[in-house]
């Protein structure tokens, strides 16, 4: 079975992000960029499935500017077999990415797509679900364990962490998985694999060639810093607390 793993280039998780002065978005000029950590988990899971003999090929995909090639090279260094970049300078929203991925799924015919449950930049948590909807495939989101018995299995078992316990699902293949933090711990890229990644195929396609209109459907009105936390205070007794809640906070 072939596995498709979409990866997103995002601001590195160690970077403290700043809002652009005009409030139009996050300033990413001269900022360190990395693979979305949830996507790294997705790549790792796909490689493990290949190592177990369940998957035959792992194809990493990224949508965005030419610099996303670096992110794809990273996926190749971790062990993906080849990569596809859907190159565009346009702003991409989750629905557009899901449509691009659907076009690639139609072309590549994987039986499994593993995505990060969300990207740490916009935290949208939509692409996987939208892709499942567009394809009419089953979806297992926020997976914390994935079990597939054989390469030609018709179903897989996925565990999800829910409030108060674990949910176990039987999922029909082909399917979409989105990864939670505890699914696995991604490996270190080894020096030999990093050097081999240079020689692995990386194809580039344009959204037009896939017949997908990526025009944004949503408009960002304003991006703002979270309100600064104000210091707390001590109250002497219940009366004062109630008075403050009523008169200052105006919540009762």
């Amino acid at each position: 079975m072939k596995i498709l793993v979409p990866v997103k280039r995002v601001v590195d998780y160690n970077v403290k992000v700043r809002i652009k002065p005009d409030g139009s978005g996050v300033d990413i000029a001269n900022v360190k960029m990395s693979m979305n950590p949830f996507d790294e988990i997705a790549v790792e899971e796909a490689i493990r499935l290949r190592e177990k003999g369940i998957a035959t090929e792992v194809v990493a995909v990224s949508c965005g500017i030419a610099a996303c090639q670096e992110t794809l090279r990273n996926a190749l260094a971790l062990g993906a077999d080849r990569a596809i970049l859907v190159e565009t300078d346009a702003e991409l929203q989750p629905l557009a990415v899901a449509k691009l991925l659907k076009a690639l799924v139609d072309k590549e015919a994987p039986r499994l797509v593993i995505l990060g449950k969300q990207a740490i930049d916009d935290d949208a948590n939509q692409t996987g679900q939208m892709l499942a909807g567009l394809l009419g495939w089953a979806q297992a989101t926020s997976a914390s364990k994935v079990e597939i018995a054989a390469a030609d299995a018709a179903e897989m078992t996925v565990k999800r962490e829910i409030d108060g316990g674990l949910e176990t699902m039987q999922v029909k293949l082909p399917a979409i998985i989105t990864t939670d933090l505890r699914l696995n711990e991604p490996r270190y890229a080894t020096l030999p694999n990093i050097m081999k990644a240079k020689k692995k195929p990386l194809d580039t396609v344009k959204p037009d060639a896939l017949g997908v209109d990526v025009t944004p459907r949503l408009a960002t009105l304003k991006v703002a810093e979270p309100a600064k936390r104000r210091g707390g205070g001590k109250v002497a007794d219940v009366q004062e607390l109630v008075a403050k809640l009523r008169n200052e906070a105006k919540v009762i």
Binding site: S34, R73, A77, Y188, A189, I194, K198
Partner: peptide, 14 residues
């Protein structure tokens, strides 16, 4: 280079 970038990241994490 992308390779050195990948190597230094992996080394840093290690």
């Amino acid at each position: 280079s992308p390779e050195v970038e990948a190597l230094t990241r992996s080394l840093r994490r290690f």
